[in-house]
Design a binder for these strands. Structure first.
Length: 326
DNA sequence: ATGCATGAGGC
DNA sequence: CCTCATGCATA
């Protein structure tokens, strides 16, 4: 906390040389003009290469990241004219029961083991159709047309498939809550669950991180992701509860701490810059590469940082939480 | 609990 | 370069 207003990015890329262009800042230029140069409003759609925006698989409207309705009276300390371009404001378990760790101390977090696994090997490599969803899309009742939904249900019924008991957001939400409660009852942390999944030996299912388990429980994953993970977590839960009855105990817990690797550093975007980004995002969620470069320059951020920020912002928009009608 | 990042798979 | 699923690092 209290991280001061500057960004602290640097050697986050192990294999990239620091030559990624960029004159690292020295914002000697006046930002005001620069900002003006970036006309936020309207921008030719087609990005370089042509952006196919036909896909669009459904947006879970809500908006948690940046919904500043309008004017915001912030205390400007070092305003640099950024605000003026802000269109908005101005307008075992080794096996399953990880009893290897005394469950007496279950913090909700912070007890991540150093599971050095620097490079992940996607557990769920099934990869559900990215981009254009083959079969379904994040169809939420709220967004579904009643009639369409009924038709789909009927069709599914005829086909012998379940209507959508599995894809129903409310069902997912209910499960997520039950899952969390029972998980805690078992005295297992989110990180433990993630690691234990690998022991389930389900085809194609490996371990997951504490982050993912946490996001599942808090419904901060995409609808499709929730659907994909549910059966896996459900299987674990059942196994774990079964084993808990038998009071299994597994002695060992060989945890080796691999040699150190390059630590990834996280860039921290200061509040003022973040506000500007949010403002840009509000008008143009998908800026072109050039646009991104321009924004990056103004905010004195690396282009890649800005690009990733937009990508992440878009993902947030699609998250589940509150997506369904509660 | 979340912010920023990586990588695979696609256009 | 995007979308998605995930994860490391952090607040």
């Amino acid at each position: 906390m209290l991280e001061d207003a500057s960004i602290m990015c640097n050697s986050w890329s192990p294999r990239h040389n620091g030559d990624i262009f960029t004159g690292l800042n020295e914002g000697i230029m006046s930002r005001a003009e620069a900002l003006a140069a970036v006309d936020i409003k309207h921008q030719g759609s087609g990005g370089p290469g042509g952006l196919p925006q036909l896909k669009h698989d459904m947006m879970y409207h809500h908006g948690m990241g940046a919904p500043p309705p309008v004017t915001r009276p912030h205390q400007m300390g070092h305003m640099d004219g950024l605000e003026m371009l802000d269109p908005i404001s101005t307008s075992s378990m080794t096996t399953l029961t990880p009893m290897s760790e005394t469950p007496t101390h279950m913090h909700s977090y912070g007890m991540n083991h150093v599971m050095n696994h620097h490079h992940h090997g996607g557990p769920l490599s099934g990869h559900n159709a990215p981009g254009h969803h083959p079969g379904h899309h994040g169809g939420h009742p709220g967004a579904h047309h009643p009639s369409a939904m009924a038709a789909a249900a009927a069709a599914a019924a005829v086909a012998g498939l379940h209507p959508d008991a599995d894809t129903d957001p409310r069902e997912l939400e209910a499960f997520a809550e039950r899952f969390k409660q029972r998980r805690i009852k078992l005295g297992v942390t989110q990180a433990d669950v993630g690691k234990a999944l690998a022991n389930l030996k389900l085809p194609g299912v490996g371990a997951l991180s504490q982050s993912t388990i946490c996001r599942f429980e808090s419904l901060t994953l995409s609808h499709n992701n929730m659907i994909a993970l549910k059966p896996i977590l459900q299987a674990w839960l059942e196994e774990a509860e079964a084993q808990a009855k038998n009071k299994r105990r597994d002695p060992d817990a060989p945890s080796v701490l691999p040699a150190g690797e390059k630590k990834r550093k996280r860039t921290s975007i200061a509040a003022p810059e973040k506000r500007s980004l949010e403002a840009y995002f509000a008008v143009q969620p998908r800026p072109s590469g050039e646009k991104i470069a321009a924004i990056a320059e103004k905010l004195d951020l690396k282009k890649n940082v800005v690009r990733v920020w937009f990508c992440n912002q878009r993902q947030k928009q699609k998250r589940m939480k509150f997506a369904a009608q509660h």
